[in-house]
């Protein structure tokens, strides 16, 4: 089965989703990412969805789950590059993804991750939100 590649950049993991994901592929990404966070002790995950022209409730929920799971594993997640039409549709759908950090592009997302990681005190892994 095809997999979405995960790149390691220093203490961060970078995922660029470039295909229209079917549900099993989205779940596989969730498995792979959580595994890689543990394997590499990553402090942050950046998911670039600028190529996606549809994010339905399943993909949206998977993104939310990834953010929540990585937080438990002591890594911050930032989703970047969501298109306006996708954002409007997600809001209409009733999925505003509270609890997921977002940024306009990869560069701003990286900045946000660095700031978030620097601002965390050690041992502050899980915070209820």
């Amino acid at each position: 089965m095809e997999r979405i590649p995960i790149l390691k950049m220093g203490e961060f993991l970078l995922v660029t989703i470039q295909v229209d994901m079917h549900d099993r592929l989205a779940l596989a990404l969730q498995d792979d990412l959580t595994q890689r966070i543990v394997d590499t002790s990553a402090r942050g995950v950046l998911i670039d969805i600028s190529a996606l022209d549809v994010v339905d409730s399943f993909i949206g929920r998977t993104l939310g789950n990834i953010a929540a799971m990585s937080r438990i594993l002591d890594a911050e997640t930032v989703v970047v590059g969501m298109r306006p039409a996708v954002a409007i549709t997600l809001v209409e759908l009733g999925l505003p993804l509270h609890g997921v950090r977002t940024a306009l592009d990869v560069e701003k997302g990286m900045g946000l991750l660095r700031k978030a990681v620097a601002g965390r005190r050690p041992g502050d892994g899980y915070r209820a939100q």
Binding site: D23, D53, V55, D56, F58, A85, T89, L93
Partner: peptide
Amino acid sequence: NLVEQTKIVTGASEIAR
């Protein structure tokens, strides 16, 4: 238009699932 397309496609995806 693009926003409407996205809404239609997303709705279709929900029900198809």
